Amino acid sequence: MNVRTAFVAAPLLIMAYGVIRIVDGFDGERGPGLAWTTGHLAFMAALVLFLPIFWELRRRLDRNALATAAVAMGVAGVACAFTQFAIDIVVGFTAADHAAMGPLFDQVKAVPGVSLAVYDAGPFLFYVAQFVLVTQLAVRRQARMWTPVLVFLDFTLPTIDRDLIPVGALLLLVSFVQLSRRGAATPRHALAHA
């Protein structure tokens, strides 16, 4: 898969996760089951696709110090979020029903440092990195000025209501489609002198 495809596929997979999550809640509870696992796998696939996206954005920014730091932060955030979703899948497979999931999550979060790194703070590094990278691109006029706004809305809307994940993913898709086009339209040697 090339990086242009990753720019489109990653938001679509996040959107799929958000829609599946909503559908999974139609019966009043989420997980365990096929929808729980499928949705989480979709988000994990999106996280993997963000690795080449981060590297591509860093390349467009001439591998400057801020971009490099943002990518390091982003990779750490991807690792934390990926771990969270992997734990969720394991809990889903282990629990007999939804009620049994809560105590299993409590056991995981009781391990020192896990709650902070995997649930509370670590995954936010993934979102902060996206925002820092696209803001740099916008400042350098390598992305539209509204791109950082859409990326910001993508990760803030779910904090208002997690059912807004598909809306945020749609906004991310809009911003990433124009990033994929700009990358394809701009020769690599021209970017090196931007």
Results as ranks from 00 to 15, higher is better:
E29P: 00
E29A: 14
G31Q: 07
G31R: 07
G31E: 08
G31A: 12
G31T: 02
P32N: 13
P32C: 10
G33W: 01
G33Q: 06
L34V: 14
A35P: 00
A35K: 03
A35M: 14
W36G: 01
T38V: 15
L41W: 03
L41N: 03
F43R: 03
F43K: 06
M44R: 00
A46H: 00
A46D: 03
A46R: 00
L47N: 12
V48H: 04
L49V: 11
L49G: 09
F50A: 04
L51M: 12
L51K: 05
P52S: 13
P52V: 13
P52L: 14
I53P: 04
F54G: 03
E56G: 12
E56M: 15
L57M: 13
R59L: 10
R59M: 08
R60M: 04
R60F: 03
R60T: 02
D62I: 03
D62N: 14
R63Q: 10
R63V: 11
N64M: 04
L66N: 01
L66M: 03
A67H: 05
T68S: 15
T68A: 13
A69D: 10
A70E: 00
A70Y: 01
A70R: 00
V71N: 01
A72D: 06
A72M: 11
M73Q: 04
G74P: 07
G74I: 08
V75N: 08
V75D: 09
V75M: 11
A76E: 10
G77C: 15
G77R: 10
V78D: 04
A79E: 09
A79M: 13
C80M: 12
C80G: 06
T83W: 10
F85C: 00
A86V: 14
D88A: 14
I89W: 00
V90F: 15
V91C: 09
V91K: 11
